[in-house]
Write a protein that binds this DNA or RNA. Structure first.
Lengths: 212, 212
DNA sequence: TAGATTGTTAATCGATTAACAATC
DNA sequence: TAGATTGTTAATCGATTAACAATC
């Protein structure tokens, strides 16, 4: 049971989401083919992913939806709410604080942090606190993961604060490469580059109609 | 010169960004090793990527920064501004409309669209228009790429509107698998799953200290 | 020139897919 | 039982890396 496979883990979350939909539709049993269609992979991939995590079904009869959901929730830690913090209460940061899809997924933003004192708001449902209070908050609330939503110029600096406060992993929206210690988990989401890639591909299709 | 390689294209954009920084620092020449460090890959990867796109340097002496920037801009279409639209003027959509990193990259959001008439605002710098006007706008402004920032329940429906209006590619933030025609480019960004993957990895590290 | 770097080919690595025996 | 699906192994595919001849 190797666990170094980021892609496989993210598919597990997608299977989980698809299963909720299947359940809602009244499905009791599900085949690897159905799940494959649900998230857009092959049935081989589904069975392979499941075997890596020790998820088994019936040689005939597929998988029991309810059973599979339970096992996945166990593996993915979906039974307890996952509390994270956001650093940077700008455009991206505040959008994430209000993002309803997080709530549905059992993800909870415990607080946001910003250096701009004008943005501090302790009364809000999700409080916005000064960055200087990050370390205390992280320790008191046992926060392990943060979202970096600050401009790229200050991203490394902010990350260093997070690391020394004991944070163990981050989702980074700043479009810059960050230096992290070996055992720190970092996942970069570069919205600009993702958009530009789409633009490039569309233009490339035009230049050579009929290829790719 | 194959062009089906999404990862390679996105690295090209990252090299481009790193080069701007190197230029700012006064660099005239650059080696594959420098660029590799800049975006966190190997120098082999850099030279391989360049050779795919016919970018060449000097057998000694590396690459001329200015020259490389120009060639990359040509390849990536950075000489003309790239105009896109946003569908959905909710949290994510409005955050993207205000996102400064887009402007820096030469990305321009021409308009946003929403079915909620309360959100319509024709006077704004970036106008918010009713979804019903999307097709006309796209044709008049020759828009080819859109960003889907609507709830997952309506994402497919919205995508269909975009496709029939002549849009050719989309960056999709809705956490659901969308059905698209063969020649339509779709790039999914699933923020929830990206965050959950970080959480999983952090917890996994804890469970087995010393692995991965 | 000697040393260093490119450009490209071959080797490696890892992830996906196909195939099929086991079996319900 | 016959048919269908799992679980796993082997084959394939694609991307990354290493190596090195060419050469400035």
């Amino acid at each position: 049971m190797k666990v170094s496979n980021k892609l496989c883990v993210s598919r597990l979350y997608m299977y989980r989401k698809a299963l909720s939909r299947f359940k809602q539709m009244g499905c009791i049993k599900i085949f690897s083919d159905n799940l494959a269609d649900g998230i857009g992979v092959t049935s081989s991939q589904v069975r392979k992913d499941f075997s890596i995590f020790g998820l088994s079904g019936n040689k005939k009869g597929g998988y029991l939806v309810e059973d599979l959901i339970q096992k996945l929730d166990e593996i993915l830690g979906k039974n307890k709410p996952q509390r994270v913090i956001v650093i940077g209460a700008g455009n991206i940061g505040t959008a994430l604080m209000k993002y309803k899809a997080f709530v549905k997924e059992g993800l909870e933003i415990a607080a946001a942090f910003d250096t701009d004192s004008a943005k501090v708001d302790r009364a809000d449902e999700i409080p916005v606190l000064p960055l200087s209070e990050l370390a205390d908050f992280v320790r008191q609330n046992d926060i392990r993961v943060g979202i970096i939503a600050v401009p790229d110029i200050v991203a490394q600096e902010v990350l260093n604060v997070m690391i020394s406060a004991g944070i163990r992993g981050a989702l980074n929206f700043a479009p810059i490469r960050l230096n992290v210690p070996e055992d720190f988990i970092i996942n970069n989401v570069n919205v600009g580059v993702e958009l530009e890639t789409v633009i490039y591909m569309v233009n490339a299709l035009d230049r050579r109609p009929g290829n790719e």
